[in-house]
Design a protein around this nucleic acid. Structure first.
Lengths: 370, 370
DNA sequence: AATCATTCCCAAACCGCTTTGGGTGCCCCA
DNA sequence: TGGGGCACCCAAAGCGGTTTGGGAATGATT
């Protein structure tokens, strides 16, 4: 790869090199570009933006000059003139109680960012404590900083949905919020079905005492997963034991602590259904600390969001898992939102992903009862 | 909370209720606010921005009215008028080869976001493939989208530093880039010292075959960590065995694979020095798969960035670890950058964090040689 | 009483684009 | 030959703030 510094000494600058060297630093604006071309700013603007009322020959000249001078229209001016922010907001809440940053966030963002890049939008991140969230949304709207918002990790009856409707800011929810009054756009995984299938799978393997290591159960996804877990039991005429259910923020140490406690019970679970790879790792640690073997003595199924830094094994999955790519969710949620923004007349959009059940090495038949 | 609609019939609207009901949704602008007050936009602007040439009584009136009408100045207009973006860019690269999103990213962002919120800046994220990175920086500058940039995960001789100097965009590097020509602002952990101390700690425990599970060694931090590891050996007259060193993207499966391979060697390591919690988890998995006991048969020290979703245990650390908060790094890097932006005359700022060595349950004396 | 600062406020220019509402030249057709 | 219709282009008015450069009171000074 040439870097431009290994040219033979004495070669000097070629004219174009010289020109480039100059142009590289002239932050040229529309007016200047227009006067260079002997055209009006109007025409240059139209030529560049593909309006039909400009001669194709002229357009070609303009485009060439723009490229040559590295003309880039000033974003700030475009935004003021068009009244559009060309930006999408992501509000990430850092709860005062729970200082955790959602670990799926980075991958979701990466997916969304791909879409934004392709469609010419900027991505704006706002970090707020949960108490400040409503104010943050209102400001985003009234200051005109963004054209729309992605709502992360909705809770049941999430107040943000009503709020965003009220202030009239387009939005797409990553997840759903049971009990919202009005229709709204969302994109979600079928959490209930995923956990129902996973539970059935364990029941089929003979497990009867299945622990649920869930996320915080005011989160909508956790409620649905729990309901899937309970449904599967009911269908088989089983009654899940409340003593086998845990709910907390999904950290590694939570999974570890919960599993240790559960395994220490008189009638311990033979299987665990876990809401994320991260607590699942903690569950595995607990199982191994107890001298048990994963997949033989104890089975584990986890939800796998396909986090890029936490792949579920390479060829063979480590965990049997219900799997759905959060990055793909990011890509599509962003696209939905932009569609909504660019056509305000559109009805709310919804998209449901199905999670696939990948059978890995962490599940096996229930051990014979000791 | 009265909504203005439940007043008794015939009571009519009180003036204030009426006003409020209207004002709540009128996205009022400066001109309107000014005319409401019987003042000029100039005066209102000055009053709100704390200029001295406005009567304190007038200022109070203006401030009260602004609050009452929920006036929020339009960000787009401010940006155009002042020529400042009031936004900081974070460019996150998604390598074409390595599809991984840096797992420390979310926590760093959370920290930086706190600072931005406090100081009135927006955070702009751009996701690009590594090939597009230079173009992304140039555009950010020439379109005026941001006032400065945080550079993430620098490589040795990172070309971005020269580029940013060239295009004149203020920046702070999270990490350092050995071999940069000019001085620049950075904030980093003392990676070399951290790994030197960790290695010494293991040597003191009698370990002689210490494996290094490093990140990609074109990353600056990985180079420094390796050099700390090597220095410690040299100081003690030891020669580290190249067969014990691994370098790759820091995923869980990488840690697992590397550890399995190393443990299968004829003269396997008795200790592992790992570059992040995530591969360390993989290392632990490998150790347990081999039927070995962590902290007794094999020791592990890891670098712990204090990721919020991957805490190193609760009271007692799981891993012995060199620890430094990436969230705090985010907070401070953001503050440094804003200082730089607001005072362009400032010399480059640098800040070095020391990582503390936390002794946990994953290290112990080297086992007697079999 | 005339002069000079101060204090407080305003009109208008400006930031860099988009967009409205023409205007000019040319060709075509009756 | 004159009017209508295109095809191209431009001047000027926004967008919603900030900022420059006064100007009118008021009070202090000589």
């Amino acid at each position: 790869m040439g870097n431009g510094f290994d040219a033979p000494a004495g070669a000097g600058y070629s004219p174009t090199t010289f020109e480039n060297a100059l142009d590289d630093f002239a932050p040229m604006n529309l007016k200047e570009l227009a006067s260079t071309l002997g055209l009006s700013p109007t025409t240059v603007s139209r030529a560049l933006n593909g309006y039909p009322e400009v001669n194709e020959a002229t357009r070609a000249r303009v485009v060439a000059a723009a490229r040559q001078h590295h003309y880039q229209p000033n974003t700030r001016a475009i935004r003021l003139a068009t009244g559009r922010a060309m930006a999408i907001g992501h509000v990430i809440t850092v709860s005062t109680k729970h200082e955790i940053v959602n670990p799926i966030f980075a991958d979701f963002i990466a997916g969304a960012g791909e879409t934004y890049l392709r469609r010419g939008y900027d991505m704006l991140l706002t970090v707020v404590t949960d108490a400040d969230e409503p104010r943050a949304y209102r400001e985003l709207k009234s200051r005109g900083t963004v054209d729309g918002i992605i709502v992360h990790t909705p809770k049941a009856k999430d107040p943000r949905i009503g709020l965003l409707h009220e202030i009239g800011l387009p939005f797409v929810v990553h997840g759903r919020a049971t009990g919202a009054a009005e229709p709204y756009s969302w994109l979600d995984v079928n959490n209930r079905r995923a956990f129902q299938r996973a539970t059935n799978f364990l029941i089929d393997l003979g497990h009867r005492r299945i622990a649920l290591i869930n996320g915080l159960e005011y989160m909508d996804f956790a409620i649905r997963r729990r309901s899937g877990y309970e449904n599967a039991h009911q269908e088989r005429g089983l009654v899940p034991d409340p003593a086998l259910m845990r709910s907390d923020e999904m950290t590694e140490t939570y999974g570890h602590r919960a599993a240790l406690e559960l395994l220490a019970q008189p009638d311990p679970p033979t299987a665990f259904l876990v809401s994320s790879m991260i607590p699942a790792i903690g569950v595995r640690r607990a199982i191994e600390e107890r001298g048990l073997k994963l997949g033989r003595d104890v089975s584990v199924i986890t939800f796998d969001d396909e986090l890029s830094y936490l792949r579920n094994g390479e060829d063979l999955p480590i965990f049997t898992a219900t799997r759905s790519s959060v990055r793909e969710a990011g890509r599509q949620a962003a696209a939905m939102l932009i569609d909504l923004i660019e056509d305000p007349a559109k009805e709310p959009l919804t998209r449901m992903f199905e999670a696939e059940l990948m059978v890995g090495m962490s599940t096996g038949p229930a051990p014979a009862r000791g």
